[in-house]
Amino acid sequence: MKTTYREAVREAIREAMHRDERVFLMGEDVGRYGGCYAVSKGLLEEFGPERIRDTPLAESGFTGAGIGAALGGMRPIVEIMTVNFSFLALDQIVNNAATLLHMSGGAFNVPLVIRMATGGGRQVAAQHSRSLEGWYAHIPGLRIVAPATLDDARGMLWSALEDPDPVILFEHVLLYNMEGELPEQAGPVSIEGAAVRREGTDVSLITFGIGVFKALEAAEVLAEEGVSAEVLDLRSLRPLDDRAILETVRKTHRAVIIDEGWRSGGISAEISARITEGAFYDLDAPPARVCGVEVPTPYPEHLERAALPQVPDIVEAARGLLSGGEGDVA
């Protein structure tokens, strides 16, 4: 069945709404507008305004209300339009969602799912282009997942809803239009564990979200040069799949980590540290990183392109490792 990432997410929401009457979707413009990225288009007509709930512009208020509703026995899906706006809800996400279970000694768990769009590449400037998955991955008590493929877009939501604790799904804005094939019977997939998207032997390209497709493209270029690159899609950023990360590095002995987020204190730093801690003696070269340049994402196309990891940057980093040179780019 031909579909898009957007339709896969919508289908996942539809299925969840049908399967469990406690599930509802709440966020800015999810109903009458059909969702800022048209993900929830048509759902208001199908499920009504109680369960496809338009909210005012009050990220902290409605995210907190999602937490409260989860405590009260519902299974809310809170849509925060983009990660950029989620900072207004940080108090609720960090101080309540991530914390209540532990702070209450297990008395109250928060079965909440938050979806938010992330990433740059659409020329919408600094306040709409951030990739701060790594920030959220810093917080104990949260599960952070980044569906990249259609299967994951279709299948991760239900598994996230089944989790008794808060899960944040990051959907990269450039993936919504991605087309592909999905089986008619596509259903839930695990929200745990990384997946090898391309097998290789010479270098591991470790990434998530949009980075998976840039890495796959880079692997094609490298293949033409006789370099066999393995692409590891992390899928989950908290917890990280240490086993899969170390396994691919032990196999290829070289790692390039690709993240649209910034290098300093980012998730790429964490992955690099875990590789050096866990597979130092398996490495033939220091881990390399291809990250967002440390500027607020600019508006003009040429500057934005330069600010974000691109296929040639990944290729160059991999080549650097194979030639024994310094791997870091950007």
Binding site: T63, G68, G72, M74
Partner: peptide
């Protein structure tokens, strides 16, 4: 406060 709103929303 948002939590209380959510508990009320659930009810």
């Amino acid at each position: 406060l948002p939590l209380a709103v959510g508990l009320a929303l659930a009810a």
